[in-house]
Design a protein around this nucleic acid. Sequence first.
DNA 1: ATATTCCCCTGGAAGC
DNA 2: TGCTTCCAGGGGAATA
Length: 277
Amino acid sequence: MPELPEVETVCAALRALLLERRVIRIETSGVPLRRPVQLAGLRESCGGRRVAAVRRRGKYIVVEFAGGCGLLLHLGMSGSFRVEGEDLPARSHDHLIFHLDRRQRWVFNDPRRFGLAEPVHIEVPGADPAELAGLGPEPLGPAFDGGYLFDVSRVRNTPVKNLLLDQGVVAGIGNIYASEALFRAGISPRRRAGRLRRAECTALAQAIREVLRDAIACGGTTIRDFHALDGREGEFAVCLRVYGKTGEPCPRCGPTARIRRLTQAGRSTYYCPHCQR
DNA sequence: ATATTCCCCTGGAAGC
DNA sequence: TGCTTCCAGGGGAATA
């Protein structure tokens, strides 16, 4: 569920709440997330240490402690965090509890358990852990532009929508923003990636940056259950132009064209067959 | 090697 | 009301 803008929103809130805080003790529900939780490793990596940095890479969050110790987090489809007083009641699907100083706790809650929380090594302060080496560039960073997209797409026969979902090509785009970016760029999601012209790649890269920036400014998109640490929902849902809008008039073409849904690589894609070519 | 399909899980909405 | 079916913002393993 959470894509780059949602993870960015969560990450900024975590940074504000956790920086310089000390992890006193760690507990788990004992239930595996995407993989079994390595409680001993987490205690070694985080236990007794102060949070030195919190940053995002693609859809991952990296929490850095002193001494090269790190914590790699991923929200999966349904993960969420909260930081609250120790006296409040636990909730269903609380799978990781980091007890902090000042009688607070930091909780990772994840009903579907597709999330991830693992100890990692940080070689140099600010560096990515080796586990993230396969990620493509940040779409809002300097390495991502139309030229890059053109180059990496040449040898790919997959539909461009699938290419955008490949985290090794570009990190952080998910199902919502892939559809939204293709709509903004006027490119059909079914187009073979390798057949895109250079100008189309430029338009698409620009559309990706725009939609992600707009969504971050709105605190992300809440379709169902995404919420930030303060409980607020992402306001970008009202700005969606095609995602989830099957049968509605196209915002660009008007009532003469209706938004359609199709399935690509097992995921829903939304697009206007009239203005996306 | 690349590209789909399937699977992991829970919960909410929609259909009957 | 209750049951069944479908669907979901992710990613990785197993298949073609």
